[in-house]
Write a protein that binds this DNA or RNA. Sequence first.
DNA 1: GTGATGATCTTCT
DNA 2: GAAGATCATCACG
Length: 225
Amino acid sequence: MANPAAGLGRLLGRAFYETRPEVVCPRLLGKVLVHRSEAGVMAGRIVEAEAYLGPHNDPPDPAAHSHRGPTPRTLVLFGLAGHSYVYSIYGRYFCLNVSCESEGLAGSVLLRALEPVAGLELMAQNRGLPAGLEMNDTVLRQLTSGPSRLCQAMGITRPSHNGLDLTDPASPLQIREDGFVLEKAMATPRIGISEAVDWPLRFVVPGNPCVSGPKGLKGRLVAIP
DNA sequence: GTGATGATCTTCT
DNA sequence: GAAGATCATCACG
């Protein structure tokens, strides 16, 4: 097959990302993140994500990496929408964001959890799980439920995957639409931040077992914009 | 099941 | 020099 990712749906184009992060974020739920690596194709359905607003927002988002303006690290967030922003956290992990809004406006969406769809063996290997493990619900949940877990499972690192154009058919990292329809999302406060802790900018697929974070986190059902 | 702790290093002040 | 969009592990109940 010329394009091994083609069976995973239609590639999302630039326009999908060229609006505010609090709109892009819930719309990303149910879409499929695909990594075509040298070791093989891996894919997972996005079931949890958080919006981070750019410094132009009123009020600005103090929890966003971009809130003090561009730095060498966050430069990609101020560029064209639909690009990957991968950063390292606590010296040992990576997290993956997607840049939103037009050039100069640094909104982004942090991908926090996936439901594994393809390449499960490879993901388990990347996560350091023993080979030949049965893929039961417990193992599935361990694979990609967390922003750094999903990067580990998919083999995503800052040196290799920062600043990629996710809308490029030739990109190893893409987001695809496969017809999965979500009626409602659950909106909750974001996880792991110390500023703007009450803003309801975390969106999850209600009831999905692969969602990360505390089980009893309260939120409200919202329509997908 | 929940809550605390340490690992470890890049980034910006 | 301090903080950080995390995770695995261990203690405790």
